[in-house]
């Protein structure tokens, strides 16, 4: 075999993968996301106290006291358990909303970029109007009128992200549509749907993955914000945004742990997601 002496040529995607695996920020980010994913799927593995169990006598127990590693909140609930269980809602809703947004956005973007002209003009104007609006505001407007259940919040965030994703995909499609391989497929008589989804889509996978990770970070950001002002989660839920709102006044009594701990948890999740996004972007852009 002669291949031992020759360096094996890597395909672009293999090259990207090996670059990513060498990136410290990518690995650190994945570690963080994996930790919170485990907390969301199996919180019982990490903590054994019930996050809802109240004990008013032990209200505001200091960290490392009476077996409460991170202390207790205003109702004597275990802050550590609540921080771990607090990942559940957001780790389900944010990815679901992002997937919805990416699916809708990719379809819109492909149509705008490939079909062009009229479709593009009309959709572009609508998208421009939607983009100028703060996402969290429109989400709030919709959640006020609709019932604020899980499906609604996923739908609302997903559809509000779709235009942003569509814009990125559109730009990527425009760069591809006049390339030879697309022309070739068209000349051999393939229909538009085939060209869009089978020919172009695999070639713009890079920007879509970047967009997915970036949007996932924003979905967490948006969901946390909505939860903080009282939408999307039930009262008493250990969700971080809601907990910070409920416990923020304890700060004034110098009791920091019930609100600062979930804030750290939330920050660690969004920063992890964005380290991944940043690393992927760095590799895709090269």
């Amino acid at each position: 075999m002669t291949s031992e002496t020759q360096p094996i040529a890597k395909t672009p995607s293999q090259e990207m993968r090996s670059q990513l695996l060498r990136s410290k920020t990518f690995l650190l980010g994945n570690l963080g996301v994996a930790f919170w994913a485990i907390c969301a799927i199996a919180p019982g593995l990490i903590v054994n106290r019930d996050p809802a169990e109240q004990n008013l006598i032990k209200k505001w127990t200091h960290p490392f006291t009476d077996g409460f590693v991170l202390g207790t909140d205003r109702s004597g609930r275990d802050v550590l358990s609540r921080a771990i269980y607090g990942a559940r809602e957001i780790m389900f809703i944010a990815p679901a909303a992002t997937i919805l947004g990416v699916v809708v956005g990719v379809m819109l973007g492909l149509m705008m970029g490939y079909l062009g002209r009229v479709v593009d003009d009309i959709l572009s104007r609508i998208i421009e109007a939607l983009i100028s609006l703060p996402v969290i505001l429109v989400a709030l407007l919709a959640l006020t009128v609709l019932d604020a259940g899980r499906a609604t919040i996923i739908g609302v965030i997903g559809f509000l992200f779709a235009p942003l994703i569509a814009r990125t995909v559109r730009a990527a499609v425009l760069a591809e549509r006049n390339l030879d391989y697309v022309r070739c497929a068209e000349l051999s008589g393939e229909n538009s749907l085939y060209v869009m989804f089978v020919e172009i889509l695999p070639n713009i996978f890079g920007p879509i993955i970047v967009e997915f990770t970036v949007r996932l970070g924003y979905a967490v950001f948006t969901m946390a914000g909505l939860s903080f002002i009282g939408f999307g989660t039930q009262p008493g839920s250990p969700d971080w945004g809601r907990t910070i709102f409920d416990e923020r006044t304890s700060l004034l009594s110098n009791v920091w742990w019930p609100s600062i701990i979930p804030a750290i948890a939330l920050a660690s999740l969004v920063v992890s997601i964005n380290l991944i996004a940043d690393a992927i972007q760095g590799v895709v852009d090269k």
Binding site: A224, G225, G241, F245, R248, W256, A263, A267, V271, D278
Partner: peptide, 24 residues
């Protein structure tokens, strides 16, 4: 990295830390 991390952290998570140090 600091800029990126701050940009994606929800405002209330940053705000509560500021309140703790500078107000409380």
């Amino acid at each position: 990295v600091t800029g990126l991390s701050l940009a994606v952290t929800p405002e209330f998570a940053i705000g509560i830390v500021l309140i703790l140090f500078f107000a409380v």
